[in-house]
Amino acid sequence: MSVNFAESAITSEKELREIVGVPHQNVVHKTISIIDDHCKNFISKSPLFFLATAGAHGHCDVSPRGDSPGSVFVLNDKQLVIPDRPGNKRLDSIMNILENPQVGLLFVIPGLDDVLRINGQATIIKDETILDQMSLKGKPPLLGIGVDVEEAFIHCPRALKQSNIWDYESWEDKATLPTLMEIFQAHLKINGVKING
């Protein structure tokens, strides 16, 4: 079944606010424009964050980034650097940043339902002095993503609480799930790629 979303689309902020309402002033004013000590502490304890980017034509990408806690290097109260470790060479985030520097970051600490959100302007850097400080097992990242921070704020725990993400008893049994390779090969087949063996 195909749905025409335009038939019930909301097309103005006025209409949206009539349905949802307006945020409390404290929610509006919780956003800061610096990386304060609380943000630095949160980032230093986060082994996982999500990087959101969009290309020049609006095509979006969200990439999970996992590393040891503190791998994101806070330069000062307005700038941080993300190490770009070697991967599959798709470079989805990097290519988007070349076209559109606006990025969003969402930092997660295992067991904690609150998340830290940071938005800003990104630049792909190759400054060896900075990259050497983010070495992993003696190897610096090939590139870094420098972010000039524009907004930082703590986000309420509702989504993570509702999802029971940290409650291992609610987790799906891995034996019932397809493996990465099964999904990967199925998607290759959809795209007409023949798989040997």
Rank of each mutant, 00 (worst) to 15 (best):
L131A: 05
V62I: 15
E13K: 15
V81W: 03
V20C: 02
N76C: 14
I35P: 06
P101Y: 00
T179E: 03
V108W: 00
E99L: 15
I35Q: 09
D37T: 12
P141E: 13
S2E: 09
L106T: 14
V62Y: 07
N191W: 05
D173S: 08
C60G: 00
L160N: 11
N88A: 13
T11P: 02
I183A: 11
L98D: 01
D148K: 00
D67P: 08
W166N: 01
L160Q: 04
T179R: 02
S33T: 03
D132Y: 00
V27Q: 12
N41C: 09
H38L: 12
K189E: 15
I165F: 04
D132T: 13
I109A: 04
K139H: 13
K161Q: 13
G104S: 14
A152K: 03
A54F: 02
P23N: 12
D67W: 02
N88I: 13
N96W: 01
L91G: 04
S63M: 10
V3A: 02
K14W: 03
L177H: 03
R158M: 06
L98H: 01
M134F: 03
G104K: 11
H24L: 14
P47F: 03
L105M: 09
K40H: 02
I190N: 11
I124W: 07
S12M: 13
I97Y: 01
I154F: 12
D67N: 15
G21Q: 09
V62G: 02
D77Y: 07
S71D: 11
L180I: 10
E169A: 00
F49D: 08
V108L: 15
V193R: 09
W171S: 06
T123K: 14
N26W: 10
I34H: 10
V27R: 09
A54I: 05
M95H: 09
Q185F: 03
V74L: 12
K126N: 07
Q25V: 12
D67T: 10
N119T: 14
S46A: 13
V103D: 09
K40N: 14
V108A: 15
A152N: 10
L91D: 03
V28K: 09
V108Y: 11
G111W: 02
N4V: 13
A52H: 08
I130S: 06
K194L: 11
P23R: 05
L136I: 06
I165K: 00
S93P: 05
H187A: 06
S68L: 15
P140G: 11
